[in-house]
Design a protein around this nucleic acid. Structure first.
Lengths: 117, 117
DNA sequence: GACATATATGCCTATATAGGAATATGATCG
DNA sequence: CGATCATATTCCTATATAGGCATATATGTC
């Protein structure tokens, strides 16, 4: 079996740096395709293709405005990624490390400390 | 050009659900490969391959213990993902939405409201 | 209608999987 | 050493890109 399609879910769609870059630009507001082409320095067809992938996973919405197509960010599609990775923050955040120390101490106390102290 | 290698970065490595699952299990503590095989219900070679990818992006560390190899989570490798996706939380979080409303109001006030009201 | 602008789609190629199956490597034990 | 347990690697195949390039599909303009 090959790798899952880029359109399979947000995780796969966003694995491509250019697509993250597109979302980053769209975070600043609605944009027509050509704006993205200029900002990213990519060929127009490639941008349209990336946008298609992002559309298929729901990360962007489109709206027709004259002969332009305005793309808009739909960040909610990224929530599953945030929800997943959020749980790992504790592994590098000092704040959580400090919390872990406290929890560890509480655990020590709770455990029938028949050894006095 | 083909898609970037799964070992290119954490984003690509973690796009595969099984690999996320492996990390989720390792979040509970160090584990030998066979434990993962049992928990994931995958064939052993596939698990070893997934672990290799995770190792190459630094998401796990290994330690030899007798004839077992104990894998351990290294969540810090996921920080780039967290850092990126964190900025999109505002797009779905009610807390941030509320904040946005406030900011919008402030902006309206600042902008010489010559239209009265 | 001819034409220009804005965007999408189709075709082609090189490349990289993910899983299945078989096998290799390594460590431990009797 | 031979057997066994634990893990890694190799080979095979179907599939899916990402980008380059040409072209199709609107839509607005004169």
């Amino acid at each position: 079996m090959a790798r899952a399609a880029t359109t399979a879910d947000a995780f796969n769609a966003v694995a491509e740096p250019r697509r993250r870059q597109i979302l980053d630009v769209l975070a600043g507001g609605e944009r027509p395709v050509n704006d993205l082409v200029r900002v990213l320095g990519l060929a127009q067809p490639q941008v349209s293709k990336h946008l298609r992938v992002l559309r298929e996973v729901g990360a962007v919405d489109v709206r027709d405005e004259g002969r332009q197509r305005l793309y808009r960010l739909n960040g909610e599609a990224l929530k599953p990624i945030h929800d997943w990775v959020k749980n790992y923050e504790r592994t590098w955040s000092e704040r959580f490390e400090a919390l872990d120390v406290v929890l560890e101490e509480l655990k020590q106390e709770g455990r029938g400390n028949d050894s006095g102290k």
